[in-house]
Design a protein around this nucleic acid. Sequence first.
DNA 1: CAATATTTGTACCGATAGGTATTGAAAGCG
DNA 2: CGCTTTCAATACCTATCGGTACAAATATTG
Lengths: 193, 193
Amino acid sequence: MGRPRSFDLNKALDRALHLFWRKGYEGTSLSDLTKAMGINRPSLYAAFGDKEALFRKALERYRGGPAAYTQEALNETTARAVVERLLRGAADLTTAPRNPGGCLTVQGALACSEAGDSIRQELTACRAAGEAAIRRRLEHAKSNGDLPADTDPADLARYVATIVYGIAVQAAGGARRGKLQRVIEMALRTLPL
Amino acid sequence: MGRPRSFDLNKALDRALHLFWRKGYEGTSLSDLTKAMGINRPSLYAAFGDKEALFRKALERYRGGPAAYTQEALNETTARAVVERLLRGAADLTTAPRNPGGCLTVQGALACSEAGDSIRQELTACRAAGEAAIRRRLEHAKSNGDLPADTDPADLARYVATIVYGIAVQAAGGARRGKLQRVIEMALRTLPL
DNA sequence: CAATATTTGTACCGATAGGTATTGAAAGCG
DNA sequence: CGCTTTCAATACCTATCGGTACAAATATTG
């Protein structure tokens, strides 16, 4: 019972996500958010909690939506296919015309004031978790003989993650998809697998 | 004539630089700055102009100081030495204990509000200029036969820059120097030179 | 219909943002 | 010394920040 909500939760969350994605956590104001989401402030707080809670929900939606390719990539059958799909997916995601340039987990809060430090740490942890997932997948590959014996899965995972982050910075600076694909060609041509 | 300035311009600028480096352009407030610089607000405005001008001066000092290794790297005699020194220098700079983690040109303003957009563009241009300098150096190397004929200097420069940016993001997330050196080993082992 | 539960809109809160007007202090020069 | 010039310090400006109190509006339930 009670008056029903007059807006769509997920649509509003998507708007918030795109804003955080483009302007970062601290660069996005509540006024920006309410305007883009088409709701007013008390409705936002009732539905999502404070700004920090809203960002975390947007991050969750990011991981389950635009960034979901990472899970699919990890399900590829060979280590090389995993790496290739991770890199190509990163270039596609960060340069898709319908998205803000770059990656939310990189530009959401790389450096910020004390007020944003909790979110900064959350994004750092999020990147570390992604890197750990790659490492585990590569460890599995190694135990299957799908990775050279002299290759350390942790090193390779960190290397792949580093290139993904670099691609995100390039995209934030306006790099086009084709240019990033050439970067990926260079990275792939010379991998130890 | 007139009353002499009671603080050291360059020392104050260094304090501002370290603050911007750690917290980004918008994450650093004027109160943060005046406190760290040991001066009060009107002195700051008289000596450096507004916040935006102060940041540009800090960026200039960054390029001429902590980031000056890039120029030295470009003066190396072989293309491989250039690339190696660029990468090793990036890891050293972004993980030096006496510095904030990461790179000012990456985390200074990757994503921000409209108010910071001018600085964001400046940093984007700064990164592009660095990449262009690498490309020109590699073009020169190619004309000297120091680069394989099938290697595009622009592609290689973009690849190197991408790894440098990735290293900066890793360092901002707390990565240690040793780990980044392993990333560099992987990148170097497989370069087309 | 009346009663209740929930959302909405407006208007506001204290705190802080970047930036400045003004006054008093400290130096050089005659 | 007295005059001028520059800097330093306090206090203040408007705008905006994230967050909320309160009352009007809209639905379900009896």
